[in-house]
Amino acid sequence: MENELRDRLNRLDRRVGLFLNAGIILGLVLLLAGLALFVAKSMPQSAPLTPLVQLPAGLAGLDAAAFVTCGLMVILLMPLVVLITSFVHFIMTRERLPLIVCIILLLMLAASYVLLLK
């Protein structure tokens, strides 16, 4: 493999690794805060996930379910961060085929969620 290509891939690997670590730590902190609030406030076990529009109010009101929902969403969106970081990287390095794959994946995910919300 050419040195330049290898350096580019190494840079991408480092960036993706960094984002993943930061996201996991943030997600875990939010989950822990939510769990602590569940125990401290003796909240009902059956409380559902907080709808996204109500998240800011829930977080401000120290609602356990809102903290857990937020932590869960941060962790669930981490793979998407990998995809977006790769997408930006392949645009900058002008690698056509991996870029096309990233675009297909982004479109596919967007279509899945649009179908889901219907």
């Binding site: 996930l49 857990v68 932590g71 889901l116």
Partner: peptide
């Protein structure tokens, strides 16, 4: 698992009280 979990979460099959201790 991200795709699957988001769909289950949307359908109400993920409960905060269960998921928080499990994930940690």
């Amino acid at each position: 698992t991200m795709t699957g979990a988001l769909i289950y979460a949307y359908n109400g099959y993920i409960i905060p009280y269960v998921i928080a201790p499990l994930m940690i």
